[in-house]
């Protein structure tokens, strides 16, 4: 049983126009086995939350705390956070040319577990997970995300979630850019990984579509850097019917640009 606890988190980012506050006091608790959906309009700070928890250097935490089972996450380096059991499936996975997927996955698995995986079971697990995600086995000899299609990148992210077995997984717009078939395959992968390891999942999405495949226990509506409303799955249904309009009386201060570090 693990708990990720985010308390009154304030985050700024430096832009050409000066320092901007993107998160304005986020409080959220995620336990093992729970699925939390964070929904919100573009620029509301959803991705900033994901990257701040993962430790991206672009974001500055000005106040608040993030703890995993009582340990101060904000004190940890990016790799220490991952080894502590946090995982971020990125919206825009980065290409690392020349580093093969198989080498990358084995290196990551060794780092997370603190020892090299047993070769026979590792090869078997890798093959099985790739087959489940309908990935071409030849992908393992290609460079990480090098020349991958959008769908391949997202499957590769979920493959990592399955293999690395995090305590808490943050999925940042994993559904974006996926067609219906790919969305179903990726969602099934998330559900399998969650079932196998009991991970807590923080699912960040703009659309309700993915929630047909991954059932949330809690839904949080994110507007202007904080949680504007929360509830159960029924809140997602309401959002699908009504959209975000009723939350957007005032224009959002945050921008798209600030929310996606991969484009920086």
């Amino acid at each position: 049983m693990s708990t990720l606890e985010i308390r009154d988190l304030h985050v700024t980012v430096d832009t050409e126009q000066g320092t901007k506050e993107i998160l304005r006091g986020v409080t959220l608790t995620i336990n093992s086995g729970e699925t939390h959906a964070i929904m919100g309009p573009n620029g509301s700070g959803k991705s900033t939350l994901a990257y701040s928890i993962a430790g991206h250097p672009k974001y500055t935490i000005t106040s608040g705390t993030v703890t995993l089972d009582g340990e101060d996450v904000l004190e940890m380096s990016v790799d220490e956070r991952a080894r502590a059991g946090l995982f971020l499936a990125m919206q825009y996975p980065v290409e690392v040319p020349g580093v093969t997927v198989s080498n990358f996955l084995r290196t990551a698995k060794t780092a997370i577990d603190g020892e090299a995986p047993k070769l026979r079971t590792w090869v078997k697990d890798l093959k099985q997970s790739m087959a489940d995600l309908k990935m071409d086995p030849a992908v393992s000899d290609r460079g990480v995300n090098e020349g991958f299609s959008g769908g391949e990148k997202k499957r590769h992210e979920i493959l990592q979630m399955e293999l690395l077995k995090p305590k808490i997984a943050i999925l940042d717009e994993t559904d974006s850019g996926l067609d219906v078939d790919a969305l179903r395959i990726v969602s099934e992968g998330v559900n399998r990984a969650k079932e196998a390891t009991g991970s807590g999942v923080l699912l960040i999405t703009h659309y309700t579509r993915i929630l047909r495949y991954i059932k949330p226990d809690f839904v949080h509506v994110f507007v202007d850097g904080r949680i504007a409303e929360q509830g159960g799955p029924e809140l997602a249904d309401r959002l699908e019917a009504e959209g975000y309009d009723r939350f957007q009386a005032a224009p959002a201060a945050a921008t798209d640009e600030a929310a996606t570090p991969a484009n920086a």
């Binding site: 980065v94 290196t107 990551a108 780092a111």
Partner: peptide, 10 residues
């Protein structure tokens, strides 16, 4: 960042 986010030290 991507590699470190997978637990790999700097």
């Amino acid at each position: 960042f991507y590699l470190q986010a997978r637990g790999i030290d700097e």
